[in-house]
Design a protein around this nucleic acid. Structure first.
Length: 201
DNA sequence: GTCGTGACGGTTGAG
DNA sequence: TTCTCAACCGTCACG
């Protein structure tokens, strides 16, 4: 943490042609996994993976204290573009967490009308099963046999609408962070945390 | 010197 | 089980 600006002096850094062929990051940190890379500031990161939570937290915290992004960037040895992105996101969403990586959008197997109906049925009768909803959709003529959504599709729709449980989506950020920290510890070998180790102290 | 932005290569995970 | 593909990631360079 004490190491400030320029873990690698500018003149000693490889030029683009020499070693930074646009995304072909130069240095690799030798870890059991060989995943860590070193950026121009000397910071360690894993390409394609979010920065660890405590770094993100630190960025926001420092910004809160009025520290300028360029200083944060140098101190934490995170690229200023990244600091900028994280702070922007924090301003917009109020969350320091990265977005959901990977996966595809859930398939839209139901029309908005059907969606609304399902919502209605579920509101009127919370105990209703997916197959019952399916039957009702058929009975009410909302769908016919050709376009009636599958039971799993209905239950997915309900999960999205009703979150599968009270307040699942409104979970406290701190709670999530705490859980993520635990998760990170468990998967330390897959995380930059393990690589960074005391670099950040 | 600082900051916003776009291109890039990479990872992830639902379908 | 494997593959595809769209989402996100952080870095870097440019202006």
């Amino acid at each position: 943490m004490t190491a400030l600006a320029g873990g690698i002096p500018r003149m000693m850094r490889p030029t683009h042609h020499q070693n930074y062929p646009r995304g072909g990051y130069s240095l690799e940190v030798s870890t059991p996994l060989g995943q860590g890379r070193v950026n121009q500031l000397g910071g360690v990161f894993i390409n394609g993976r979010p920065l660890p939570n405590h770094i993100r937290h630190k960025i926001v915290e420092m910004a809160h204290h009025g520290i300028r992004p360029c200083v944060i960037s140098r101190q934490l040895r995170v690229s200023h573009g990244c600091v900028s992105k994280i702070l922007c996101r924090y301003q917009e969403t109020g969350s320091i967490r990265p977005g959901a990586i990977g996966g595809s959008k859930p398939k839209q197997t139901t029309t908005p009308d059907v969606d609304k109906k399902i919502e209605e049925y579920k509101r009127d009768n919370p105990g209703m099963f997916s197959w019952e909803i399916r039957d009702t959709l058929l009975k009410d003529g909302i769908c016919d046999r050709n376009n009636v959504p599958s039971v799993s599709s209905i239950s997915r729709t309900m999960r999205c609408k009703f979150g599968g449980g009270a307040g699942e989506d409104e979970e406290d950020d701190d709670e999530i962070e705490k859980r993520e920290l635990e998760e990170n510890e468990r998967r330390a070998k897959h995380s930059i945390d393990g690589i960074l180790g005391d670099r950040c102290k």
